[in-house]
Write a protein that binds this DNA or RNA. Structure first.
Lengths: 217, 217
DNA sequence: ATTATACGCGAACAGATGTTCTGTGTCAAG
DNA sequence: CTTGACACAGAACATCTGTTCGCGTATAAT
């Protein structure tokens, strides 16, 4: 069995997504044929069987318009654009980030619901609610919710949640590893001055800040 | 025409949402009848016509399984927790808010997708992207997205987007009408001082700030 | 040349589907 | 009591729909 898609099969797939999007229900075999230039119903049926074998669609035989798209890549997924992110607790400047988010059970705890369009890849995400105004230099207010992606390293310029060992303090800053090895932590507020840290071992990256949400009742 | 839904009609609506969710395509009239205890196809057809008249569904006649849900629904609504908010433009301190969002066509423009759980009532909402760092005293950064509810008055203590006539300036502040009639505009940043304005006519409320979203790629 | 495979056309067919027409029972208004 | 709207049952019917079978074409391997 070939694994590549015929041009006709690609056309069928494209037509399916479009048709379902506009009409709310799948097309019939004859409609597919008319749209893709296949003049025989059996030929369409044949191609649909191919697409089913390759896992692109799923069919209910004998049922008129009984098919659905499986690949969520083109535009198929309608409702899984909501991402549930576990709210792991609170973040305070004077304490380390509560849970090393190793275990990934998003139990019956609180979760934050956001749309995927805001986030991209939802793996490794967790949320913290900021307590107090100690991070105001990062333009983060008391009560704000910070969405983090758990990772130990960040690229230069990315906003990160870092634990400063010697100061015993958590803070949100843009992270820059300078050429001489020192670390520069740049506040989001452009009117404020950066922090320079000579020993990179003192800087412990807890995660990369992906999103900040402020809710005002 | 009665506006209330029969029990059977509610059942039909619930069945429709459930069936479409699981199968990816709508049920046939006979399947609806079997699921809701209606033994005649004409009776189902009759109820579907009622539902269509009341705006709950939309139908393509003569087409097998040719129907789709419109309202997502009073009975079994599960998945309309995504709210589309029109992005009306940019907001700059030195200019008035671009569009008095009177007309409510959310055309092919950009929209922001958010979950309803963050927002509550989605009526009258629109989004603006902040340009520049002039609103940093409201803890709002360049590029942040502000979700506003269009209204001319706000309660004391609510965060509002206001246009200051004499200064010709838009700003985001907490709004307080003092007992002596003056207006106090309190920055979100607690380290900064409020603005007092003697003549309330100089303060033009553009909307109430509901949400602030900061995306850091 | 022969064979196998992929792809497509056309026609026939059984079953599924929506519509329409007629009839029945209920219930409230006149 | 009569009337009429409302909700539903049952049957008949024209279409729509997916499947199957026979046949043709092109390409590549044998």
């Amino acid at each position: 069995m070939r694994e590549t898609l015929t041009e006709k099969q690609q056309n069928i797939l494209a037509f399916l997504t479009d048709y379902i999007e506009t009409n709310g229900y799948p097309p019939s075999i004859r409609e597919i044929g008319a749209a893709t230039g296949i003049k025989s119903t059996s030929a369409v049926s044949y191609n649909l069987r191919r697409l089913e074998e390759m896992g692109y669609i799923s069919r209910d035989r004998e049922v008129p318009r009984g098919l659905r798209l499986l690949t969520l890549s083109p535009a198929g997924g309608v409702d899984d654009d909501v991402v549930r992110i576990p709210l792991r607790g609170r973040i305070v400047a004077g304490a380390p980030i509560p849970l090393p988010p190793s275990d990934f059970s998003l139990m019956g705890d609180e979760t934050i619901e956001l749309t995927r369009s805001l986030l991209g890849d939802p793996t490794g995400l967790y949320a913290l609610q900021v307590q107090g105004n100690s991070m105001i230099d990062a333009l983060v207010h008391d009560g704000d919710i910070v969405i983090l992606r758990h990772q130990q390293r960040v690229e230069n310029g990315e906003m990160a949640a870092v634990w400063l060992r010697d100061r015993e303090e958590t803070t949100l800053k843009r992270f820059y590893q300078e050429e001489d090895g020192t670390v520069r932590l740049q506040p989001a507020n452009p009117t404020m001055q950066p922090i320079y840290i000579g020993d990179p071992g003192q800087v412990e990256v807890q995660g990369k800040v992906v999103l900040v949400v402020r809710r005002l009742e």
